[in-house]
Design a protein around this nucleic acid. Structure first.
Length: 597
RNA sequence: CGGGGAGUGGCUCAGCCUGGUAGAGCACCUGGUUCGGGACCAGGGGGUCGGAGGUUCAAAUCCUCUCUCCCCGACCA
């Protein structure tokens, strides 16, 4: 039995001033965690207990479909060089040298290592499929750690990797993970949503994120309340209403117009008395292209053109070109590639490359411009714009693609749905991903198929952020006094609060009750501290335990109070019945979570 | 990396502008009174003011450099 008086649970009346996000404040105030450095945290007793419960659930469910491994966190350079990620991971990778000068890194993910095992050990299609997973500490040199445990440099991840003989097999492995992830998050009591996600430049074909809505989140999710469509805004699409406003003037040729000081979209729209939707915005970037095998990386000029009222979606833009990084152009580069100043850039007169990322300028035009006529755009000349510009007739491009970010209120992209998209902030707790052949190919994993022919296994990778489950749970269930966790992941299921330890009856009753609860299989914390009742109540409310039993005033009559933290409601219960009642409550909670999503 | 802010007992902060050798509340220790929503009284311990250098008779305070942390933008579990 755990006696509070003997434990280290350093609760704080006030949170550090720099903790802003609810989960950050409460995890510190409740004594779950303490900060050691930027994005580096100590997990104390309660925090580690909660983490262990989460890991228990993850492990139990993952064991239904896969096999647990444990790979090193300290990794040699070679596998990363083979996959091209030694450079590809850039500054996000922690690197170090050993005493001999050999280069190593701290693992931020383990595709390379798992694939190395596959390459060395798998020989035949008969050994497939395989699903291997581990629960491991990951290290990422985040440019900006923030929000407590939400974005850190060291964290725990459950990462899984599947190896299949063909695409159908991968689909199956993907489906298995999807189902298991839903079970895991449900059991953890999270209200989550599965969304379509960007598969990045890593060559994947399908990617799905599991998200929990919270203002502390860093992702934006677009969803349709009508049909259930949901996607990360990095990936989301929408249907646009046609632009109905009158075109500026007939179908004339481009006309140079003096537009002094109109460097911003709003100025241009006001000047021409058009909506920003009829203006062509230009965003100029330098894009990084990773050099193929042995060749160096290179930077290329890119001009993205889209409607004035739209925002460039850099993830989509990268994907459209096959580039791996973007930065905005400097003034000299604007002159070099577009021969124009910022604020007055336009597509007319520029010479697009035939293929993306060649020596000249790659011109990417958003699909929404394709059928437009008589628009306004910058003239690549200070204080001048062009009107009556028609895409295709007056300028050409390297490629068109969907490169804009959807906005709330636009129409759902699903056929005939008609719903209006809503956009909300969310935190990513899991991600499942069809990798394809990228790693098995580059690292040379091969097996023989039925015909004795060498084939490359197809892979998937699947991650869950362990601490983020805890963080998301705190984010979704807190009030001014603290937070509450579902019994499945709470460090304790019930706290027995003895309101006055100097009262022999209360003390004795609390001891006995705690022992009975424990005998009934519940994780019980006995608050036997020599503190005033108020202090104990405040602490109990703070630290996330879902149920509390007060042994106090009514105990002389054979009764105790059962307090449900989530609702702050309490009922008087006969002492002889309280153990059964708590068990019943916990079981009911679990049932609700099992169906819930 | 770009922009903004902050480093003063464990926590929250004052003091800095206008240099004179460090303070409050909470927390902690001792004793007493209290005892169902973060008690009260009395006594006590604890800080070379992030670090280095400089100016000065004298620096938490002024100057320079530096480190760390937080927040806003580009990355991801």
């Amino acid at each position: 039995m755990h006696r509070w008086s003997k434990l280290f649970i350093p609760t704080l009346r006030e949170a550090p001033a720099d903790a802003e996000v609810a989960s950050h404040r409460f995890l510190i105030r409740s004594g779950y965690i303490r900060q050691l450095g930027a994005g580096i945290y100590n997990y104390l007793f309660l925090g580690q207990r909660a983490i262990n419960k989460i890991i228990g659930i993850v492990r139990e469910e993952m064991d239904q479909i896969g096999q647990e491994f444990y790979l090193p966190a300290l990794l040699p350079k070679e596998p990363w060089e083979q996959s091209g990620r030694w450079t590809g991971m850039g500054d996000n990778m922690f690197r170090l040298k050993d005493r001999k000068g050999a280069e190593l890194c701290l693992g931020m993910t383990h595709e390379e290592i798992m694939t190395t095992i596959a390459k060395n050990e798998l020989r035949s299609y008969k050994q497939l499929p395989q699903i291997w997973y581990q629960i491991q500490t990951k290290f990422r040199d985040e440019p900006r750690p923030k929000s407590g445990l939400l974005r850190v440099r060291q964290f725990t991840m459950k990462d899984a990797y599947s190896f299949d003989i063909d695409k159908a097999g991968l689909d199956k492995s993907f489906e298995l993970h999807d189902a298991v992830y839903r079970k895991i998050f449900s059991r953890c009591g999270l209200k989550f949503v599965a969304v379509e996600a960007d598969s990045g430049s890593m060559g994947g074909s399908q990617s799905q994120e599991f998200m929990v809505y919270t203002d502390a989140g860093e992702d934006l999710i677009a969803s349709c309340p009508v049909c259930g469509y949901a996607a990360n805004t990095e990936k989301a699409t929408s249907l646009l209403a046609p632009v109905t406003e009158m075109e500026p003037t007939g179908d004339g040729k481009p006309e140079l117009v003096f537009t002094p000081g109109c460097g911003a979209i709003a100025d241009v729209a006001a000047f021409f008395k058009i909506s920003p939707a009829s203006d062509i915005k230009c965003v100029a970037y330098m894009a990084l292209k990773r050099g193929a095998a042995g060749k160096p990386d290179s930077w290329h000029g890119v001009a993205a053109f889209l409607r004035g009222d739209h925002q460039v979606n850099e993830t989509k833009l990268l994907g459209a070109m096959g580039a791996s990084e973007l930065r905005t152009m400097q003034a000299e580069e604007l002159t070099q590639y577009l021969n124009g100043p910022a604020g007055f850039l336009g597509p007319v007169g520029v010479t697009p490359e035939a293929k993306p990322l060649e020596s000249g300028l790659t011109v990417v035009v958003d699909s929404s411009l394709e059928d437009r006529k008589n628009m306004v755009c910058g003239a690549n000349k200070l204080d001048y714009h062009l009107r009556n510009v028609t895409p295709g007739r007056d300028f050409s491009w390297t490629l068109t693609a969907d490169i804009r970010t959807v906005n709330e209120g636009e129409s759902c992209p699903k056929n005939g749905c008609g719903g209006k998209l809503v956009v909300g902030k969310a935190v990513e707790i899991g991600h499942i991903f069809k990798l394809g052949y990228k790693y098995s190919e580059s690292m040379g994993a091969r097996v023989l198929d039925v015909n004795g022919k060498e084939v490359t296994p197809i892979m998937g990778s699947y991650g869950i952020g362990i601490e983020r489950i805890l963080t998301a749970a705190v984010e979704q269930s807190n009030d001014k006094n603290g937070f509450w966790l579902p019994a499945s992941i709470a460090p304790f299921t019930v706290v027995v609060t003895v309101t006055n330890m100097t009262d022999a009856l209360l003390k004795e009753t609390g001891e006995t009750l705690a022992a009975e609860l424990e005998a009934a299989g519940l994780d019980v914390l006995l608050d036997d501290r020599d503190e005033r009742a108020g202090v104990k109540f405040k602490d109990a409310d703070l630290i996330g335990i879902p149920y509390r039993i007060n042994v106090g005033k009514k105990t002389a009559e054979g009764k105790v109070e059962l307090v449900t933290r989530a609702t702050s409601t309490s009922v008087d219960v006969e002492l002889s019945e309280v153990v059964a009642l708590v068990r019943k409550r916990v079981e009911e909670d679990a049932l609700v979570m099992a169906v819930g999503e």
